[in-house]
C-alpha cells in the first residue's frame, strides 16, 4: 500500500511536469495581454523536434535545445498576427495549433513507433533522495521536473519582483498608459509570446524524450488546452501554477489506479477533461475582481489609438 502511494505520487509529479512547463509559459504570455491558444500545436512541435534530434544525434539535451528554438520560432507567427497586425487572437492561436499539429504529424511520420534508445536519464539528487518517501517522489525525477519547478519560480520572480515584470504586467493591464511611460509595449509582448512558445515546446520535449520515449501523432492529447485552463486556475501566478499542475498530474495518474477496479478505460480517460471543467467551475465562484486576470487579455492594441 505504501509503495503504491509513493509510486502514484511519483508518477503524478512526472505527469504534472509538462503541464507546469506549459502553464508557466502561458502565464507569462497572458500577463502581457496576449492570449496564445497555440500551446497544443507548439507542444506537439517541441515533442517531435526533441524526439528526432535526440534520435539522430544521441544527445537529449541538444534535442531539448532544438525543440525550444523551434517552439519560439513558430510562435513568432502568432506574435506577428496578434501584435503587429492586431488580428483576432483566438483565431490566430487556433491557426498556430492546426499548423503545429500538422507539421509535427508530417515530420514525425517516419518515426512513429520507433523506440528511443538514448533517453533523458533521471537525476537522483544525493542525500535528498534518501529521505524516506519524499526522496523517491521529489528528488529522483527527470531533469525536466526540477527544471519545471525552477522555471516556474523564476517566472514568478520575474513577474512579481523585477522591473521587467512590472512592465510586462502593466502592458497586460493598460498598454496605452504603459506606452506613454516610454516602455516598448510591442517588444515586451513579442518577448512574452516567445517565452511562452519556448515553454510549450519544452513541455512537448518532456513528453517525447522523457515521459513516453516515443512519438505518436496526437500524443499531446489536449495537454496544451488543459494548460490554458490551468493558467486561469492558477490565477495567472506561476507560483500557484506549481500546485495546480501537480494536482492535474495526479488526475492523469489516477485513471491507471482505477483501471484494475474494472472501470472502462475510456470512461477513465475522460477524467482530466472533466476535471478541467470542474476546476473552472470552482474558480468561477470566486470574486471576479480577485481573479487577477490581465485587464486587456486578448484585446488587440493599436499604437496611438485614442
Amino acid at each position: 500500500m505504501e509503495d503504491m502511494i509513493v509510486s502514484t505520487l511519483e508518477r503524478a509529479m512526472v505527469a504534472g511536469t509538462p503541464l507546469l512547463l506549459a502553464t508557466t509559459g502561458e502565464v507569462v504570455c497572458e500577463r502581457s495581454g496576449i492570449l496564445n491558444l497555440g500551446v497544443e500545436g507548439v507542444m506537439a512541435m517541441g515533442a517531435v523536434v526533441a524526439f528526432i534530434v535526440t534520435m539522430t544525434t544521441g544527445n537529449p539535451w541538444l534535442g531539448v535545445l532544438c525543440a525550444v528554438g523551434v517552439g519560439m520560432a513558430i510562435s513568432i507567427l502568432h506574435a506577428f498576427t496578434a501584435i503587429s497586425l492586431q488580428a483576432n487572437q483566438v483565431v490566430s492561436g487556433l491557426a498556430l495549433t492546426m499548423l503545429g499539429l500538422g507539421i509535427s504529424g508530417m515530420m514525425g511520420k517516419p518515426y512513429v513507433g520507433k523506440p528511443l534508445l538514448v533517453k533523458m536519464e533521471d537525476l537522483t539528487l544525493p542525500f535528498l533522495s534518501d529521505i524516506p518517501y519524499l526522496g523517491k517522489i521529489l528528488f529522483a525525477q527527470s531533469p525536466f521536473f526540477y527544471l519545471a519547478i525552477l522555471l516556474a519560480l523564476a517566472a514568478w520572480f520575474l513577474l512579481e519582483k523585477t522591473r521587467l515584470g512590472i512592465q510586462i504586467r502593466s502592458t497586460g493591464e493598460n498598454p496605452k498608459a504603459t506606452e506613454t511611460q516610454g516602455i516598448p509595449v510591442a517588444r515586451i509582448k513579442y518577448l512574452c509570446v516567445l517565452i511562452g512558445g519556448g515553454f510549450s515546446a519544452l513541455a512537448g520535449a518532456h513528453l517525447s524524450i522523457s515521459y513516453s520515449k516515443s512519438w505518436i501523432e496526437g500524443m499531446t492529447a489536449g495537454r496544451g488546452w488543459i494548460a490554458i485552463a490551468l493558467t486561469i486556475f492558477a490565477l495567472w501566478n506561476p507560483g500557484r501554477a506549481i500546485g495546480a499542475a501537480f494536482l492535474f498530474g495526479f488526475v492523469f495518474v489516477v485513471q491507471y489506479l482505477l483501471q484494475p477496479l474494472g472501470i472502462s478505460p475510456n470512461f477513465l480517460s475522460m477524467l482530466p477533461y472533466v476535471a478541467t471543467l470542474i476546476i473552472l467551475l470552482f474558480i468561477s465562484f470566486k470574486d471576479p475582481r480577485r481573479l487577477n486576470a490581465p485587464a486587456m487579455l486578448g484585446e488587440p492594441y493599436k499604437r496611438g489609438e485614442r
Binding site: T81, A95, M98, L101, G102, I103
Partner: peptide, 9 residues
Amino acid sequence: GIVNGILLI
C-alpha cells in the same frame, strides 16, 4: 492540417 493552418493564418 498544415494546409488549413497556413490558409487560416
